[in-house]
Structure formats: structure tokens, C-alpha cells
Nucleic acid binder design. Structure first.
Lengths: 144, 144
DNA sequence: TCACGATCCTTAGCTTAACTAATGAGCCCG
DNA sequence: CGGGCTCATTAGTTAAGCTAAGGATCGTGA
């Protein structure tokens, strides 16, 4: 209880609308270094984890395995990801960022989110804190 | 100054990742009543505004005009949107939700966001309040 | 031990959603 | 009244996602 003025349904609508528009806006910005947002996200997950199977990476990115196959294929074309066979399980594949992939990520660490960062910087510290906590909550909800 | 622990760049990354995954999750849910999230959002904007030109609607939805042309075409096919010529300007078109369109929206007012609403309901009131304020901030940022 | 079900990844094919570039129609101003 | 601008659409491409189906491999239970 202590329900706020805004009902859950209304919150759902406005939150979804806000996120939809925000997301479009983020995607409108030209991909950094020829990597799309999706590809960059996958590559980042991969580097953070060290090495993952396609399924694990798909789960981490919340997409279906065939979708990840395509994303990985594009990253592999560019030589950013390497595919090695699993030592014991012949079905599995192990994915890892290559030297070039890590270089790209490092290179973009500063340039990353070049559209978004200045706009966040223009907000008040309280607003940024709200967004920081919201990001955590959204991750939790998406994961549920 | 008074910079929070988390740098703006880090916030940009984590916020973008959270929203990307969240958005995927929302889109994974099958469209309500055969309307996709995109179509529903456009139809809602249209009804809220009363009537808009394609360009105005595209601006409101943060997409390019050709994209809106396609979205509107699908809504028109279903008879949810009506296209009437502008009284004085022969170039322009006026879009408005039809009776059927309004009926669909009314019908979905309760069923809308059926995936999201229960998950929001499971959060604490404080978390919901954070998301409510975050939605406002995100709208503002997307609009900037 | 070996056959069968389960798991992993990929292929194939489809849909949606977005973009840019170009086209055609109409408006307006000099 | 002609040339430049704006509006909407068409055309064509790309990315991103899905489901369904296939082949290869693993592991288990009779």
C-alpha cells in the first residue's frame, strides 16, 4: 500500500513509452566505429565474462540463440570475436573477444555513449542518481 | 562537482544497457490485440493529440517520416486511423484515430502492459517512485 | 553397449523496424 | 510565373529479432 498517486498501469504505460522513445533516440545515433549498439553490447558482455558459449551469451543479452548466432557472425567477420571448440564437449563452442575486439572496446571506452553522456551531464546530480537507481531496477525487472 | 561515485560515462553505459535489455524484454511479449508496441504507441499519441500530420506524429514518436508512413499504413489497413486531406495545404494530410481505433485503445486500457504491470506491482513503492521520476527524466532527455 | 532422448549450435525463412536517397506534388516568394 | 522549399511517399537496404527445423554430439538407461 501507500500506493502513489500514479497507478501501476499508468506507470507501466508511461515507463514503456519513455523507454521506447529513449531507445529510438539512442539507436538513431550512428554506431560507434561501425559497431551497432547490439554488437557493442554483446562484445562487452563477452569481454566482461572472459569467455562464453553462444547460449550463455544469448541468455546474458536476453535474445534467442539464433539471434546471437547472427550477432556473433558479424563480430567474427570483423575479427573481433574468436570461436574455439570446447575441449571436451564437441557440441559447444567457446567465444572470446580477440585482441582486436578488446582494442576496439578500449578505444571506445571514452568515446562510448558520446550522444548520451553530455546529456546526462546536463542533468542535476539528483536526476542522475534517480537514473542510476532506475537502471538497477530495470535490470532486475528485465531479468525476472 | 558533487559528482556521484558513478561517472557520467559509466552511468551512460549502464543506463543504455539496462534500457536495451528491458526494451527487448518488452518487445518479446506478443503484441496486444495484434497491434505491435510501435503501432500502439503511435495510435496513442494520435489520440492524445486529437489529430496530427504524419510529420508531427513522426516527431512525437521520434522516428523519421518514412518510418511513420509505414506505421500509419498498417494502422490504416486495420481501419484504426483515418487520413483526410488538409483543408488549405494540399501537401499535408491529417491523421486521426477512427472510432474503431479509439475502441481498440479503450479496450486495451486495462489489458495494456500486461507483462509489465504485474512486475511493477511486485516492486516496493519507493522503487516505483524512482521509476516514475526516471520516466520523466528519460522523456526529457529523449526530447532534448 | 548402444539406441534414444536431450542439448547445442546453426540454417532457413519470415517479420518488424528503422534508416537514407530519391521522387512527386503543392506552396510561396521574389 | 519560375525556382526553391516543404510534405509525404516510394524504393531499397540493413539490423534485429523470432520460430521451426536440421545435424552433430552427448549421456543415460535398459
Amino acid at each position: 500500500m501507500a500506493a502513489k498517486r500514479v497507478s501501476v498501469t499508468q506507470l507501466a504505460s508511461s515507463l514503456r513509452d519513455a523507454i521506447t522513445r529513449f531507445n529510438r533516440r539512442v539507436r538513431q545515433t550512428r554506431p560507434v566505429g561501425d559497431l551497432t549498439v547490439t554488437q557493442l553490447s554483446a562484445l562487452t558482455s563477452l569481454q566482461l565474462a572472459g569467455a562464453l558459449s553462444p547460449r550463455e551469451l544469448a541468455d546474458a543479452e536476453r535474445v534467442q540463440p539464433p539471434t546471437m548466432t547472427k550477432i556473433v557472425a558479424k563480430l567474427e567477420e570483423r575479427g573481433l570475436v574468436q570461436r574455439t571448440p570446447h575441449p571436451t564437449d564437441g557440441r559447444q563452442v567457446i567465444l572470446a573477444a580477440t585482441e582486436a575486439g578488446r582494442a576496439i572496446l578500449a578505444q571506445h571506452e571514452r568515446a562510448r555513449d558520446e550522444w548520451l553522456a553530455p546529456r546526462l551531464a546536463a542533468l542535476t546530480p539528483e536526476e542522475r542518481e534517480t537514473l542510476r537507481r532506475a537502471a538497477e531496477i530495470l535490470q532486475k525487472v528485465a531479468r525476472a
